[in-house]
Amino acid sequence: MALIEAQGLRVEFPLYHLAARSLKKRLLARAAARVRTDEANRVVVSALRDLDFRIGSGERVALIGRNGAGKTTLLRSLAGIYEPVGGRLSIDGSLGSMIDPAAGMDQDSTGRENVRLRALYRNLGPAEQARLEEEVAEFAGLGEFMDVPIKGYSAGMAIRLAFAIATSMQPQILLMDEWFLAGDAAFMGKAEARLAELVSGADILVIATHDMEIVRRWCTRAIRLDAGRIVADGPPDQVIEAMMAELG
């Protein structure tokens, strides 16, 4: 059983290397809502403020909201990358995070070497690594390019490889940023089928997106973030309607 639970979750980004006092003052005067100084007199941006939610097995959650609302930061916190400064966060279940396609890739290595590297990053044994390699080679359909350094790839090929690597492992909790839904048209059909398969295999899906079509089709719940706070949480249709009404 997979479970994500957050209580009073708070994440702040310190703005280091802000030596000039005038710059500090200007920032604080202009956007006082989210930029503030903390106890240690550092300038921090409140990325996530006091979030409370519980996501249980079987839920497909969409994170929606404007740019800078905190969607990706929340995904990264759930992935265990950003440590919260306040509140509690607990996650049960294996994690698959598809946040950045190029994460952990070595540009000078071939596609195949990158697959092996990823297997090491995920602590897979030799047998599983071989399976991953086979699976990725088949799905990405790169043919002989699997043995070419990836800096020689076209943008489309790089996405295909990244996509294949990221979606070849079956996690219980799937964290996804919306770049996964942008690819070349020929690949998209295949990718969508694959994602649907992955999503149905996962216990929990959390996806950050701007595409309301995806929210309606895939998700059972939508969480709307604004300026780092949850402003709405509920069935997708309801949350989207409320947002549309508000934005006019």
Binding site: R10, G80, E83, P84, V85, G86, G87, R88, L89, S90, I91, D92, G93, S94, L95, G96, R122, L124, E128, Q129, R131, L132, E134, E135, V136, T167, S168, M169, Q170, P171, Q172, E197, L198, G201
Partner: peptide, 18 residues
């Protein structure tokens, strides 16, 4: 079901107060 490897379950918990 995908043919790829299945990831082992793990737990991650963090409490800023402790």
């Amino acid at each position: 079901m995908l043919a790829g490897p299945i990831l082992a379950p793990e737990t991650y918990a963090f409490d800023a107060a402790a």
